[in-house]
Design a binder for these strands. Structure first.
Lengths: 130, 130
DNA sequence: CTTGATAGTGATAATGATTATCATTCCTGA
DNA sequence: TCAGGAATGATAATCATTATCACTATCAAG
């Protein structure tokens, strides 16, 4: 059976303490700052284990996997291509339409990923005159 | 200025000759079979150059970039997690709702990516009894 | 308590897609 | 014909992630 070790507990606590998204390196850095030093492989395995238990969730953004706490309502992501900030949005209607589109093609939908790219309000205002 | 060299022409022809999706290795293999032997780096650069010109389009699926011809109507993708087949679907309403969601957050939308994962009709039928 | 079985850890090597480097070759316009 | 920019291709480098492997921690049973 899967064990919730000290290391995994530290990872889980870290992720549950905020609403932000974390990649493996973020976690490693943050834990270092907290005094814990956890091998990078252990972090990858820990993140995978915690996700397998449903204790955290993840999204693939570009070539990195990002983790976030699981006790949030379902949502998708808006990624600012300038500052890298990740915002969230929920849209039940879009989800429903996706299910309909899948059904129409006899496709058994098990998951989806919707990511919108663009400029967040702040970057859009600032970088207007490029 | 960007040149449409023999190699790039070969890549472009290949991609335009079918509706399928190609990753860099697919292209390399296919060109080898056709007698052309193009360096893998050249293929990557060629694909990027062709996309920059709007001559082909691409989607990021998992950790691989897939290219397809550009003269198709906009669409998103359904990826079968069993056989790897990629199907397409268009859904103007979903697009519109995305634009609305972005506008609501003052997010300047420049692109999006919607991928649905699941089992295609064929795999769903076959592998039903797992 | 001691042993075993099993799971986890961490350092490091390996993987796999993609990009960078660099010497060489190809074009194109003067 | 010549110069210089662009492209090529072999290969090294990158970067996130995964595998390997020796070692440690945990837990159940004798």
């Amino acid at each position: 059976m899967l064990r919730l070790t000290t290391q995994r507990q530290a990872i889980l606590d870290l992720i549950n303490q905020s609403n932000r998204h974390w990649d493996a390196d973020d976690v490693a850095r943050a834990l270092l700052d907290t005094g814990h030093s956890i091998g990078i492989a252990t972090i990858y395995r820990g993140l995978a284990a915690l996700e397998a238990q449903g204790l955290i969730e993840s999204v693939q953004l570009g070539d990195k996997r990002h983790y976030e706490r699981a006790d949030k309502a379902h949502h998708d992501h808006m990624v600012c291509t300038r500052c890298g900030n990740i915002d969230e949005f929920a849209h039940p209607t879009i989800e429903a339409l996706q299910r309909a589109a899948a059904a129409e093609k006899h496709f058994r939908l098990t998951g989806h990923q919707l990511v919108m790219f663009g400029l967040c309000a702040r970057c859009d205002t600032q970088g207007g005159a490029t």
